[in-house]
């Protein structure tokens, strides 16, 4: 049990370190900017008409307060931590006066739902095909599907999404290409609403699957072709154990463990892909919120979403780290 406790402590330390460094990084980046966010916001607002100089001065004061830009650098830094811990990033400028946090909270289920679904499909399918391709090296069908998956793998999410959008939205218009569900439907447990959810989610999810499946396929295939030459597999073959049993219990099972660690490590990248995909398909998740915030110059929204996504990815990684020992006995029993 000693080894297990050590593992836990190490993971916990890493978890806090990621959050600490990530949040600090977000703070430092905002300070490196040559642009003053208050001036930027003020000029943005005065564009809409408010030009009374006294009103502008008042607004400047209010914004400095709001953005936590008053006081020394250390005070500002500590203040930033206070806001992160309370989950309070002030009101959004582009959707005034809705708080940034409630925008994030209402967008979060869309992103989490889309990502979880896409990730489960990607991981399962990529690993299954990769393991089969690594074990049955001479199967033509597996070779062909492998070649297709690998050719797609380096293409960025936006390009794959755009091609799908053109194919299923314009050339053969069978799927909705914008939004999370049909506009005129109320969220409910009705057949129509769920059907609409699924239809709207298909293209974004397909994009994420096509983007992500290649790296799982490639790493699983090379893991398996290495494990196949391991002593315990060769021995099972000499023992006349059936090849389906060797595949599932001696090869795939062992190769899945590093792939689970890989899942934790890849979450950051996967989230990045989701940001782009959501924007492309106008999917109402956190990613679209972030990019809209950038286009609209909404300082508190951009800072809030970035910080919260760093925290959220760290939490997800930590959850996978906690599940890992349940599956790998070498960690569980020292």
């Amino acid at each position: 049990m000693d080894g297990f406790a050590k593992y836990l402590v190490r993971r916990l330390f890493q978890f806090f370190l990621v959050i600490f460094l990530g949040v600090s990084l977000a703070f430092v980046i905002t300070k490196l900017s040559p642009v003053d966010p208050v001036e930027q916001s003020v000029s943005l607002m005065t564009n809409f008409g408010a030009t009374d100089p006294r009103a502008v001065e008042l607004m400047r004061e209010a914004l400095q307060e709001l953005y936590g830009l008053k006081g020394s650098m250390i005070e500002q830094y500590l203040g930033f931590w206070g806001r992160v811990l309370q989950g309070d990033f002030g009101p959004s400028l582009s959707s005034f006066p809705t708080p940034v946090m409630s925008l994030i909270v209402s967008a979060l289920p869309w992103t989490v739902g889309l990502l979880t679904l896409a990730l489960i499909i990607t991981w399962t399918l990529g690993n299954l095909l990769g393991a089969l391709a690594g074990y049955y090296r001479n199967n033509t069908l597996l070779k062909l599907s492998g070649a297709a998956i690998m050719a797609l793998h380096p293409v960025p999410a936006y390009i794959i999404g755009l091609v799908l959008l053109l194919a299923f939205g314009f050339i053969w218009p069978v799927l909705p290409i914008s939004g999370g569900a049909q506009m005129n439907l109320q969220p409910a447990f009705s057949f129509d609403y769920i059907r609409s959810l699924i239809l709207h989610g298909t293209l974004p999810a397909l994009t994420l699957v096509l983007v992500g499946i290649g790296s799982w396929f490639i790493s699983m295939r090379s893991l398996v072709s290495n494990i196949v030459t391991d002593d315990h597999v060769v021995y099972a073959e000499l023992g006349g154990v059936s090849s389906s049993k060797i595949f599932s219990q001696y090869v795939a099972r062992n190769a899945l463990l590093p792939q689970l660690t890989g899942l934790a490590l890849s979450l950051g990248n996967v989230f990045g892909g989701a940001v782009i995909t959501e924007f492309l398909f106008n999917y109402p998740g956190v990613g679209r919120l972030l990019i809209q915030g950038i286009y609209r110059g909404d300082y508190s929204l951009v800072l809030g979403v970035t910080t919260m996504s760093i925290v959220a990815v760290a939490v997800a990684v930590f959850i996978i780290d906690l599940i890992y020992p349940l599956i790998d006995p070498r960690v569980r029993h020292g």
Binding site: D230, D231, V234, Y235, A236, G240, Q249, Y250, R253, L257
Partner: peptide
């Protein structure tokens, strides 16, 4: 086998090896 140290699957209990073989 040579290198008998690694002939048992590291992530399964020993009893499964006896059963499979």
């Amino acid at each position: 086998m040579q290198g008998s140290m690694n002939v048992l699957n590291p992530v399964r209990k020993v009893k499964h090896a006896f059963h499979d073989f």
